[in-house]
């Protein structure tokens, strides 16, 4: 069998790439094609954690249901009662001089 000339082989490969719609890149130049080739991973990544239902989420979505989050209500009541007794959280400092950290002993 006669040897096939290399020009014929490259012509064949070129034809093959046009038929199968692949990029013709015989010298292996970096064209960045690999960044476009793969599938998008984002949607699968975003669905990793299963959806967690909570009463506050449902109540936020459907305000017409008038659901009551009992735990949250209890927390708010606790905060209110603590505030009444003067045990509430301190006011946020407006600037550095008001910061309580400065007077803190270390």
């Amino acid at each position: 069998m006669a040897a096939v000339s290399s020009s014929r082989v490259t012509a064949l490969l070129k034809l093959r790439s046009t038929i199968f719609q692949t990029a013709w890149n015989p010298t292996g130049i970096r064209t960045g094609a690999k960044y476009l080739r793969g599938n998008l991973r984002g949607p699968a990544m975003a669905n990793y954690y299963p959806m967690q239902l909570s009463i506050s989420k449902i109540a936020g979505k459907y305000p017409e249901l008038e659901l009551c989050d009992e735990d949250e209500q209890e927390r708010l009541d606790d905060v209110a009662s603590r505030k009444k007794r003067g045990k509430g959280a301190p006011k946020k400092a407006k600037d550095k001089s008001q910061s309580r950290r400065l007077g803190k002993r270390r």
Partner: peptide, 17 residues
């Protein structure tokens, strides 16, 4: 990642080409 994936890939393609 999901929101920026397409744009990032486009920039990557240009930058690495």
């Amino acid at each position: 990642v999901k929101d920026n994936e397409v744009l990032r890939k486009a920039y990557l393609y240009v930058a690495r080409n």
